[in-house]
Design a protein around this nucleic acid. Structure first.
Lengths: 224, 224
DNA sequence: GCTTTTGCACTGACCAGTCAGTACAAAAGG
DNA sequence: CCTTTTGTACTGACTGGTCAGTGCAAAAGC
């Protein structure tokens, strides 16, 4: 975290507000506040779910007054939706980078998929709370943010689909494989294995997990 | 949904579900009420999440008075926990049956795994709401039913692990594979692919999905 | 004649969202 | 200079509503 504002809060009803310290330029402050709110919200919602998490909790964890939440976001739901957009953006671009880097090195598409598994694991390791939250909310029907999630899912899965498609076109994979279903299965494999690793087998290393998933991808499990 | 299910309740030590068809006349009525409540709760909670679902809603959907909910269950949480136990019992025994049937026919362990994928898909197709709910709650930390879930997850994953282990012992699979991680990855693959199928690609047939997953299991995606 | 269910009124905690007010920097004005 | 105004960011007590869980008398099953 970057901003070094050393300021103190007073109480509203009695204590003299003892504030202080200047802000550099204008809107940097707001950005920092939003970031704090994102960070507080993501862990709380991942732990407890959206409805079970109160705005008061989010504000408290962020070290901010409740009113500030509503100054920065229209509603609790809007805060959550922006969180989703923000997080999936990070994931998708991290997957894309992994694929592109492999391509630049002249690697095969299968290698690119392997690299994406690695990138996925790094992401989940870094933002476990976000991943948890994403998985928990993705398949809920009837929610307000359903449309946001649909878009956001497509952004992530599309990256995998495009690499699979290129692999088929390049003759690297049989054209019998079902691109959308296989992409979903691969993403699910990584997501669930990683969450399970963190929740139930935390003693394993990321390399262990990557190796196990690679083996599945390369067909060394059920192998012919 | 069929109300005439054969009732199963897990016993603690044996791990083997005991079938309860009908205890005594008075209990049957109670069981029917409980079943109605499970069915109402599972869809509502899958759609909205645990906290967002009210007891009044559950009672109304079940066509039962609110007091009845509390006559049959200590609390909303307890209702939910028993729902989880009940559902995972069904899943685990369905997986076990698939594996056993394959074994009886003299099939290989890989074939057993394939059959379990099929059984998993049938289960998800029949109880999509339960699956949704399970995935959404499984990796949450800090929840009251955390310990219930841990037990319940183990029951399902253990079935897959045991088949993998037998396959390794029988020389069908390399002993280099990591049994717990691979089991988690396989379960995740099926779970997520199936949910994705239902939510985002409902036009596909179950056979399509099974074929795509089989291909991954048999290594016909990343080839060698 | 038990167990189970109903219907309904009630309570107390909890919570999303509001609003009047504070803090403070920078600009405007004198 | 100093003082007044303006804009932005934030504060926290408060409100109106919601909901888990209770209590109980009467009815319905078995």
């Amino acid at each position: 975290m970057s901003t070094e504002d050393v300021w103190q809060r007073g109480t509203c009803d009695s204590g003299r507000p003892v504030t202080i310290v200047a802000m550099d330029s204008s809107s940097t402050r707001r950005q920092a506040t939003r970031q704090k709110l994102y960070e507080a919200a993501v862990t709380l919602i991942a732990e407890q779910g959206f409805s079970a998490t109160t705005v008061d909790e989010i504000a408290e964890r962020a070290g901010v007054a409740k009113g500030t939440v509503y100054y920065n976001f229209k509603s609790k739901t809007e805060l959550f939706e922006e969180l989703l957009r923000h997080g999936v953006g990070l994931l998708a671009s991290s997957l894309r980078t992994a694929a592109d880097t492999t391509a630049e090195r002249g690697g095969s598409k299968i290698e690119a998929l392997d690299a994406m598994i690695g990138a996925g694991l790094v992401f989940i390791d870094r933002y476990p709370a976000f991943t948890q939250l994403y998985v928990a909310e993705l398949w809920r029907t009837n929610r307000a943010w359903q449309s946001t999630l649909l878009v956001v899912r497509q952004e992530a899965v599309a990256v995998v689909e495009s690499v699979l498609r290129e692999a088929v076109e390049g003759g690297e994979l049989s054209d019998e494989i079902d691109v959308p279903l296989t992409a979903a299965a691969l993403v699910g494999m990584v997501l669930v294995a990683a969450l399970d690793w963190q929740a139930f087998q935390p003693e394993r290393s990321m390399d262990d997990v990557h190796a196990a998933l690679s083996r599945l991808l390369h067909g060394r499990v059920g192998g012919r």
